[in-house]
Amino acid sequence: MDDARIVSDRWRDAALVLLGHGSTQNPDSSTPTWQHADELRRRGLFREVQCAFWKEEPGFREVMHMVEADEVFVVPNFISEGYFTRDVLPRELELTGPVTRRGHRLIRYCDPVGIHRSMTRLLLKRASEIAAGVPRDRISLVIVGHGTSLNDNSTAAITSQVELIRASDAGFAEVVDAYMEEEPLVAKWDALTTAPNVVVVPFFIADGLHSYEDIPVLLGISENSPGAISANQGEVFRRNPYSLRGRQLFYSAAIGTDELMADVILDQVAAATAAQ
């Protein structure tokens, strides 16, 4: 029996719990987390798969009442390590570290999805899909984050991905990071890049105000229209490419909406399984 088989046999008796932020305002905030859970439930790898949210139901404090397995893998569907993954989630779930024993239950707290190296695979796939047929050596790839300390280590997560892709044989003309609220600013995307085609991928867990509206306004592909979020959801991603400032601009939905995120979740569970 190979290692992968041994691992998946263990998972079959375990529960997987995905933790998301959720929102009381944006109905799309929790959608990717639910969809990844649906996909993993369909695959039948775990005895049970549940989600819980900070701002939606079920809440972090009640999700353990929804699972029955003795071993529970808890995966934060968050883009980076920081306030939520280090303070809020352990506090709310009463976790004491990577492994928490409570009665006969073992809870394994995994790293957040966004910091796994396999996020690189998603970024490359997303770039290929969105600018299909465009040679990579004629593409500048821009990975966009929020910036500022409000978003914890999201900047570090993004610069790490930029370095990994630069060091790979992906073959992009260039790979750069950019931010909404700090330098290098995404609003200066044309000055940050040189290739004739520019692919912009928001490094966020879900689509929402930032990806629907704020970043498009900063890029110059959308008018500033506060409150229009519910009226034009997703429309901005369907008008590619944009001819702007002498370039072809391709704008992607948030990376966390990619269906391959389900595999990144499994990668984090595998890492936690191997770490014991």
């Binding site: 079920p58 009640e62 009442h65 929804m66 809020v88």
Partner: peptide, 28 residues
């Protein structure tokens, strides 16, 4: 969400209701 699990946990004595002031005191 969690209605069934909460009901089973509560009626079997496995869930301990948390006073609201304790919830507030825990916030950061």
């Amino acid at each position: 969400p969690a209605a069934l699990g909460n009901w089973v946990a509560f009626t079997s004595g496995r869930a301990v209701p948390v006073p609201v002031k304790a919830t507030f005191a825990r916030q950061t």
